[in-house]
Design a binder for these strands. Structure first.
Lengths: 252, 252
DNA sequence: GCGACTTTGTGCATGTATTCACAAAGGCTT
DNA sequence: AAGCCTTTGTGAATACATGCACAAAGTCGC
């Protein structure tokens, strides 16, 4: 399937690489910070340093949006902020609902970074009757039974799932059925969704595990234990000999 | 600089691609879940489906660890769990300190997914005297002045930074100076660290912005506004004409 | 013990991302 | 107004990642 490839534009063609899209918010943040400091113009070298990337990469990324720099000078901060914001869709407001008001849901509800960037939290939902009615950051927690109504009435287009793992897929199915096409998932499960729905996952324990891998690497690789007898490995290793028993605890 | 490339191993050579490392925790989770259901053996096809990836990719990923499957049969769940755990460094315990006990820090402290996977939270630190002394999930919040002592005494090797943006770099410098070489950063800033230190970033607002981009795409691309007059773009557009004023708010 | 069937492990082709390095483009100075 | 200096934008080279497709390797029924 070729997705909406055609629009009435002729400069930057509509195929911005995913890797670039993922970096644009970082550039945007760096630009905002420059703006606060009153900087009017920035070179790719400086901006790249602030964003923690290679300057050639930054220039190529920006070139996908169009040609917004001035050779010999750099980029005008305010103009670039606008162009990136527009490209990312931040010149309009997005209505967000947070589902699952545990510790994490509360933290998200109170997160200042939403409002300032065009994301409006319009609903906090939970299944727990004790939590429903509670007021958090100016919003009253509502019962998840009203999910479909809330999404419809308030025009929610992004759902943030912060429920326990066991509930996530069911909640996801419901928000998708109600018309949501973007989901940010904090529950430690792989959500399955129909084509056309985007899911992004944020997973604390995965990030820690990746760090652990590199940490171990620095310390000298895995404790070899059964690798001593060489390449035969598998055949010789006692198959159930797991030193720690990895019993899955129900999470969050 | 060629990093520790040599160990006493001859099977899977020590170059596991980063993309693979990032997926191993996902496989591990899927395997744990199979284990809970009493499944003893799984094919690459099934496991791939559970992890939400292509089965060829899964097989290639696993082949980097060694040859742990049986043709015609599949993979033995328990054995594979052990091998992946070992590769990720989860057969040993990692000591974690969480710095910054706001909403997010609390949520992290209470997150069940840590303990069950070999991560032990050994310290909660904050600069706010009102918070210090408070008990959260069985730990007492300590003052950040004791940072260096705590890291040294308790053998902290991973620091989780959940402070406000403004404090993050300073905290990071201190934990690195105290010997920490892995940092998980929740603050919305790019941390700069010396070589040999790994930083991973989790950023809620970046994820939302990426979703917004795709959401906008589905809806038909950016509102064109100044692109109407064609390719001239930049020259013709009124340079400060940002419809919304993107003033950076100090973030959670 | 043999043949049919299943599923792994991987070579190869394709696609995507990064980085280098430099010509083209603009501003600034004299 | 000419030339120097800076910095962009991008072609080309390289590196990394994905997915197909199939031979090799094993199991299981008969």
């Amino acid at each position: 399937m070729t997705p909406r490839q055609t629009r009435n534009r002729d400069r930057a063609d509509r195929g911005i690489p995913e890797a670039t899209v993922a970096r644009l918010p970082v550039y945007l943040r760096a630009l905002h910070s420059l703006q606060d400091r009153g900087v009017a113009t920035v070179s790719s070298e400086e901006l790249a340093a602030a964003a923690g990337v290679n300057s050639a990469k930054l220039r190529k990324d920006l070139s996908h949006l169009g040609s917004y720099g001035t050779r010999g000078v750099g980029y005008e901060v305010e103009y670039l902020v606008y162009q990136i914001s527009r490209e990312l869709g931040l010149t309009q407001d997005w209505v967000v609902a947070i589902i699952g008001v545990g510790n994490l849901g509360r933290a998200l509800a109170g997160y200042g970074g939403f409002a300032s960037r065009g994301f409006r939290v319009a609903g906090l939902l939970d299944a727990d009757a004790d939590i429903v009615g509670e007021e958090i950051s100016g919003l009253t927690v509502e019962h998840i039974d009203r999910l479909e109504d809330i999404i419809g009435e308030r025009g929610v287009s992004i759902a943030v799932i912060a429920t326990p793992a066991g509930a996530a897929q069911k909640v996801c199915d419901r928000v998708v059925a109600a018309g949501v096409t973007s989901v940010l998932n904090f529950a430690p499960v792989v959500l399955s969704v129909p084509d056309g729905v985007d899911v992004r996952k944020v997973d604390l324990s995965i990030e820690l595990q990746i760090l652990a891998f590199h940490e171990q690497r620095k310390a000298g690789g895995p404790d070899d234990l059964d690798a001593l007898e060489g390449a035969a490995g598998k055949a010789a290793a006692p198959r159930g000999a797991t030193p720690t028993q990895y019993v899955e605890a129900v999470e969050a």
